[in-house]
């Protein structure tokens, strides 16, 4: 009881004082099983607030699997089992009493392929705030939609056609719309699963620029196949290989002076 209170006080203090929690998301001994097959082996990692954490590694190394543990998207796969502990702001997200819907409002997600709802641009962004009751009035909702689109650097391009279908935008615009949709519910953490893999270089550059902006306000975790992208946008990088978190550290260190031979081999292009 006492513990809980101190925890809450600490949390309150960090929010009020602006002193950042060094461990926004903390994972300890996280393992994931798909049926009999083990996909992730005892991953332990701490992810700081207000920054970009990149997960890199070859295909099938478990980086996306781990990412999807953080908003419990893996729950939707019936044969998937997660052990270990993941906390956000010291709150265990696999606690049975925790409401997973509430969690996903706190941990937004942007997917590999842009997946706007087949509705208007406005409805795409307004959907999250609406189901969570974040806006009391139409004007408030309009405001949320506008700020979210501005934060996603899309407002200027779409402000005159908010009622056009979101699926009619270009790929890069669609992905930024998805980011606006994620931002609209004011999450604490935004997960991005290879957000640029379906985009051309110009759209990629725009999204990367946007990620750089967003890190002022959010804890961003990005999975990427592109090491250049990890180097460009992230402050910290974690290298996964065969379901094991091989190495984690400041992005500069990982790319210039990795500790592990496997990391060295991967970033120099010897495999993967």
């Amino acid at each position: 009881m006492l513990n809980v209170q101190t925890n809450e006080l600490q949390q309150g203090a960090t929010k009020l004082g602006g002193a950042l929690n060094p461990h926004k998301v903390a994972a300890k001994d996280v393992s994931v099983y798909y049926g009999e097959k083990r996909a992730l082996f005892d991953v332990t990692v701490n992810i700081p607030d207000r920054g970009v954490m990149a997960f890199i590694g070859p295909s099938g190394c478990g980086k996306s699997t781990f990412l999807r543990c953080i908003n419990r998207m893996n729950d939707t796969i019936p044969i998937c089992r997660v052990t270990g502990k993941i906390t956000i702001e010291d709150e265990d997200i696999y606690d049975p009493s925790l409401d997973v819907v509430q969690l996903r409002a706190r941990v937004g997600m942007v997917f590999q392929k842009p997946n706007p709802f087949p509705k208007s641009i406005y409805e795409n962004v307004a959907y999250g705030p609406r189901i969570h009751g974040l806006a009391g009035s139409k004007a408030e909702l309009d405001h949320i939609v506008e700020t979210s689109l501005q934060r996603a650097a899309l407002w200027k391009e779409v402000k005159d056609r908010l009622n056009d279908p979101g699926t009619g935008l270009s790929g890069g615009q669609q992905q930024r719309l998805c980011i606006a949709r994620a931002v609209a519910v004011s999450p604490e953490v935004i997960l991005m699963d290879e957000p640029c893999s379906a985009l051309d270089p110009i759209a990629t550059a725009k999204v990367e620029e946007l990620i750089d902006e967003l890190k002022q306000n959010f804890c961003i975790i990005i999975v990427t196949h592109s090491m250049q992208q990890a180097a460009r946008v992230s402050q910290r990088t974690a290298f996964f290989h065969l379901g094991v978190l091989v190495e984690e550290g400041a992005t500069n260190d990982i790319f210039t002076n990795p500790n592990d031979q496997r990391t060295q081999d991967y970033i120099t292009g010897r495999f993967g």
Binding site: M73, T76, V101, A105, M109, N115, P116, G128, H132
Partner: peptide, 27 residues
């Protein structure tokens, strides 16, 4: 209905029921 639509709905914090009634069924 593409799974990406379900994921998108779940991703912004819609419940399973909401993702079905708001997105899957209309489609």
């Amino acid at each position: 209905v593409p799974p990406s639509i379900r994921e998108a709905a779940l991703g912004v914090g819609a419940s399973k029921m909401q993702s079905i009634t708001h997105h899957v069924l209309p489609l």
